[in-house]
Simulated scan of single mutants.
Amino acid sequence: MSLATFRIAAESIKATAHPPGAPVLNWNSFFSLRTSRRRYSLASSIVSSIAVTGVAFVFLSTQPEMADEVTKLIPMDPVISMGILTFAATFLGWLIGPIFGNTVWKLFHRSRLPEFTVKEKAFFERIRNHRVNPMGASTNNPVPDYYGEKIGSVQGYRRWLRDQRAFNRKREGSYPSGI
């Protein structure tokens, strides 16, 4: 998609999505919403992993016949088997946490969600178009933030672009020797 086509599409989205005079989501607001969504996901992962671990611990400690079933599945010492099962429950809680966090975040930010979705698609399109080819990666030249996960502001995006260009220059060997 060319830049002119992208601008025309963005203008048509602005015209159809917003009545005149309504505030449009700018990039800085988009990045702050993106950061808040990530925090909701992290907080819900922590809470759900603690909750699922607590439920698993209570269930395993109150059901003595569970120890026999677990040791049949995991043929080790019952304490180690229960520890593995408790760790698995914690991991499951960590994995299901973002589902709840993103749902709560969407409920709180319902009014800005359509704008956010459009801006997020445009952002990921930019990331996809400007990221480097990871084929030139090595231990001395690792790929810089391939998915753009660490970008938290417009300045961060510009820094990400500079890092992508620097990676390409290093990969192509256009740095003078000695640097």
Results as ranks from 00 to 15, higher is better:
residue 54 G to P: 09
residue 168 N to L: 12
residue 145 D to Q: 02
residue 78 P to G: 04
residue 117 T to A: 12
residue 142 P to I: 05
residue 51 A to Q: 15
residue 39 R to E: 06
residue 11 E to F: 13
residue 84 I to D: 06
residue 154 V to H: 03
residue 168 N to D: 15
residue 29 S to F: 03
residue 70 V to R: 05
residue 12 S to R: 14
residue 102 N to V: 06
residue 86 T to H: 08
residue 16 T to Q: 15
residue 122 A to H: 08
residue 111 S to A: 14
residue 126 R to A: 15
residue 31 F to A: 06
residue 105 W to H: 04
residue 37 R to G: 04
residue 98 P to H: 01
residue 69 E to I: 00
residue 67 A to N: 02
residue 68 D to K: 04
residue 115 E to W: 01
residue 58 V to E: 12
residue 5 T to K: 05
residue 84 I to W: 08
residue 87 F to L: 14
residue 70 V to A: 06
residue 97 G to R: 00
residue 158 R to N: 07
residue 162 R to Y: 13
residue 100 F to L: 06
residue 18 H to C: 07
residue 68 D to M: 04
residue 103 T to H: 12
residue 48 S to M: 14
residue 124 F to P: 02
residue 12 S to P: 00
residue 92 L to Y: 10
residue 109 H to Y: 15
residue 33 L to F: 07
residue 10 A to P: 03
residue 123 F to Y: 13
residue 175 Y to D: 13
residue 24 V to R: 09
residue 22 A to K: 07
residue 4 A to N: 14
residue 128 R to G: 09
residue 44 S to W: 06
residue 106 K to H: 08
residue 178 G to A: 10
residue 175 Y to T: 10
residue 142 P to G: 00
residue 39 R to D: 10
residue 117 T to H: 15
residue 25 L to N: 05
residue 87 F to D: 12
residue 53 T to N: 07
residue 45 S to T: 02
residue 124 F to W: 15
residue 66 M to S: 00
residue 77 D to S: 07
residue 110 R to H: 11
residue 88 A to H: 03
residue 8 I to R: 11
residue 41 S to H: 08
residue 96 I to P: 01
residue 31 F to Q: 02
residue 6 F to Y: 11
residue 98 P to N: 07
residue 57 F to I: 10
residue 159 R to Y: 01
residue 150 K to V: 02
residue 32 S to R: 11
residue 35 T to K: 14
residue 22 A to C: 11
residue 89 A to D: 05
residue 14 K to S: 11
residue 19 P to K: 15
residue 75 P to H: 01
residue 152 G to I: 01
residue 57 F to T: 14
residue 92 L to M: 12
residue 140 N to H: 12
residue 108 F to P: 01
residue 116 F to L: 00
residue 161 L to A: 08
residue 2 S to T: 13
residue 25 L to T: 09
residue 141 N to Y: 02
residue 62 T to A: 08
residue 18 H to F: 10
residue 157 Y to C: 06
residue 166 A to I: 09
residue 141 N to W: 08
residue 77 D to W: 01
residue 125 E to I: 13
residue 109 H to I: 09
residue 151 I to C: 05
residue 85 L to A: 06
residue 126 R to L: 14
residue 59 F to C: 13
residue 101 G to W: 04
residue 67 A to M: 10
residue 27 W to Q: 03
residue 59 F to T: 15
residue 94 W to S: 01
residue 90 T to Q: 12
residue 102 N to P: 00
residue 152 G to H: 11
residue 95 L to K: 12
residue 168 N to M: 11
residue 172 E to R: 11
residue 58 V to C: 10
residue 97 G to T: 02
residue 159 R to F: 09
residue 75 P to F: 05
residue 57 F to C: 10
residue 85 L to G: 03
residue 101 G to T: 03
residue 115 E to H: 05
residue 176 P to C: 15
residue 166 A to Y: 02
residue 73 L to F: 01
residue 28 N to Y: 14
residue 137 A to C: 01
residue 48 S to F: 08
residue 152 G to Y: 05
residue 25 L to R: 05
residue 65 E to V: 11
residue 54 G to F: 00
residue 104 V to P: 03
residue 90 T to P: 08
residue 9 A to E: 09
residue 121 K to P: 09
residue 111 S to K: 15
residue 167 F to K: 03
residue 96 I to H: 07
residue 19 P to A: 12
residue 5 T to S: 12
residue 63 Q to K: 11
residue 137 A to K: 02
residue 119 K to Y: 00
residue 95 L to S: 10
residue 157 Y to V: 03
residue 81 S to A: 08
residue 9 A to W: 10
residue 152 G to Q: 09
residue 38 R to L: 06
